[in-house]
Amino acid sequence: MSGTTGTTERQATNQDAPTLIAHRGFAGVHPENTVAAFEQAATGLDVRPEMVEVDVMPTADGEVVAFHDFELGRVTDAPADLADRFVWETPYEKLTQLEVLGTGESIPRLADVLDALPPEVGVNVEFKNPGSTGVRPRENLPRDDRPAQRDLWLDFAERVVSTLADCENDVLVSSFAEGALAAVRAVDPSIPVAAVFAESVADGMEVARRYDCEAVHAPWNMISGTPLFNAEYGSLGPYEDVDLVETAHREGRTVNVWTVQSWYQAAQLRRAGVDGVIADYPGVLQFGDDAGLADD
């Protein structure tokens, strides 16, 4: 585990194309968070990412698995009695019997994902849940609440860090949950971390500063100065008009943006100076930063 984000060198000028980060292994073209997705993203495409993003949470018996949702129903063939069960309430052996999106792929362990990646491809490990309904993501926590939230994540953070110990890939840990970032810092301060923003630029930056995050991860409609700013994106926004890219770069933090779906979004974000795009599709950067765009 080399412990770098892979993009900090170009923060000052951002003259190169942004880092391409394969969201869940390019979930737009592959079955998300499966070994096959990560293998194909890393080695099977003409356009290959510099980093992949994988979501992690625990099983009932302590394994660390790659899975995004809390419940099993959306992406697996779980029977009715399992579809609404939380992943962390389910033993790993039971999870291996489920099929992801009708592809024949099963839910893998984080260790299996790492084994499938060549060492030159970085890995962004996003902490989704430590096995508790008591976590508080998307919050800038009050001081008195921070220790308890950190403690909820500590055991899980130790398991993930142990899994990453022999990893040769560049590693970045990210989370919406402040408690997860605090736990990773407590377990191994050398691992780069990223605060994932959702509710507020100001609150997100406070969390990033609190844990000296090497990176910040923002939704694409949070980047001011672009036509994307405060565009409709699910329930996200509207946001305060703060130049997040300039602010983060001034403080030495990389800005990666999620979840980019089109070349147009990627081109606008590149013009704004972001360092990375977390994308569902591999071709979003192929047309460059100015292709087909009128001057603002």
Rank of each mutant, 00 (worst) to 15 (best):
N221M: 01
C213W: 02
V52S: 10
S132A: 09
R143L: 12
H68L: 06
A182W: 06
T133Y: 14
V54W: 12
R136K: 14
A27Q: 15
E105G: 12
E251V: 11
F176T: 04
A83C: 01
A180H: 00
T226D: 02
A148H: 08
T43C: 14
P91K: 11
V171W: 02
L114T: 14
N14M: 04
T4Y: 05
A186I: 13
Q149M: 11
V274E: 00
E71H: 08
I107L: 10
A202Y: 04
E240Q: 03
K128W: 08
V196W: 00
G131N: 12
T59P: 03
A27H: 02
L181A: 07
E50A: 07
D203W: 05
Y239P: 10
E158G: 04
A177V: 04
M51E: 11
G104Q: 02
A27N: 08
T34A: 12
G6F: 03
V64P: 11
A248C: 05
D81T: 15
A279K: 03
D295W: 10
D145R: 15
L236A: 08
D280V: 09
G252W: 01
H23K: 01
V64Y: 12
H217G: 02
G122Y: 00
A42M: 04
D155V: 09
P142I: 02
F26G: 01
V161C: 10
E63Q: 15
P49M: 01
W258R: 06
D166H: 13
P58H: 00
G73C: 13
T96G: 11
V56K: 07
R250K: 14
R146I: 15
G73V: 01
E93F: 06
T163N: 09
T19G: 11
V242F: 05
T133G: 12
G237A: 03
P238S: 03
P108E: 08
G179Y: 00
Q15W: 13
D55F: 08
V171I: 15
Q149E: 15
G234M: 03
G276V: 04
I278P: 05
E89G: 08
A266W: 02
P227N: 07
R143E: 15
S190V: 12
A148R: 15
T90P: 09
L110Q: 02
A202S: 14
A202G: 02
A42H: 03
Q286H: 11
A272P: 14
A111V: 14
S200C: 01
I107A: 09
A198F: 12
V87S: 02
T90S: 04
V87E: 03
R250E: 14
L72Q: 07
A80V: 11
S174I: 00
G273F: 01
P79L: 00
R270I: 04
S200A: 05
A183Y: 04
V35T: 14
V47S: 06
A83R: 13
V173I: 14
T4L: 06
G122D: 10
R271E: 13
A272I: 03
V171N: 12
R250L: 13
T8V: 08
P238L: 06
M51T: 14
V260E: 11
T163W: 07
A266H: 09
E93K: 08
V123K: 13
I223H: 01
R138C: 15
R138N: 15
A218H: 00
T19H: 10
V100N: 10
E178W: 02
L152H: 03
F67Q: 00
A22E: 01
V160P: 09
A41N: 07
